[in-house]
């Protein structure tokens, strides 16, 4: 059970959150201008690093805010004080 550091509520049990996948994947400003491959890349392709990873969480059973954290995919450690 991860203890997820919500920037609004403090550390809370993982069960209060929804995972939002990789952070900083912006919705394309003009999807129609993208090729099918580029659009598929936005839809389906995400990084899968072994190590630190910027990712999104949603405090769905708490303050209902989305936020970003940096978490280590091996140790599951949340980088302290990082506001990505």
């Amino acid at each position: 059970m991860l203890s997820v550091p919500c920037p609004w509520c403090g550390p809370r049990d993982e069960t209060e959150f929804k995972y939002g996948g990789q952070a900083h994947v912006a919705y394309p400003s003009d999807p129609a201008a993208l090729s099918d491959a580029e659009w598929a890349s936005y839809l389906f392709l995400r990084d899968n690093p072994k190590g630190w990873f910027a990712e999104r969480w949603f405090h769905s059973a708490g303050c209902r805010r989305w936020f970003d954290v940096v978490r280590h995919t091996v140790t599951y450690e949340f980088a302290p004080g990082v506001t990505p």
Partner: peptide, 8 residues
């Protein structure tokens, strides 16, 4: 009986 992520 169990040691889980985040010292839980």
């Amino acid at each position: 009986t169990g040691f889980y992520d985040g010292n839980f």
